[in-house]
Amino acid sequence: MKVAITAKGNDLKSEVEPRFGRCQWFLLVDIDTNEVEVIDNTENVNRAGGAGIGATELIASKGAEALITGHCGPNAFTTLNAAGIKVFLGGQGRVEEMLEKLKKGELQAVEAPDVKGHW
């Protein structure tokens, strides 16, 4: 399974970025093979609106099946749902720590957004 994680930097030691749509980087990790793809999200950081929607389109096109981030607003959540991407919120600390938690089954996918729009 490929997991996208919002990150402040472009490697696994980076901190998790709490914002989804306007994060600078996504680290797309295949948790079966440990392969990592770095996705630059500048395009959505600079968007006037709908950053979360654009970010979902981006990670979906790269084959992400799950997302780990800090918070997620309603528009992004609807889009993630439609794309069939599972959402894990409350991500913090280093990217690699969150991956470990996911592998151990310590993260719970959420069923609803946790913040209002324009986050």
Partner: peptide, 8 residues
């Protein structure tokens, strides 16, 4: 404006 998107 991302007001309409087609996903899957």
């Amino acid at each position: 404006f991302s007001a309409i998107v087609v996903i899957k």
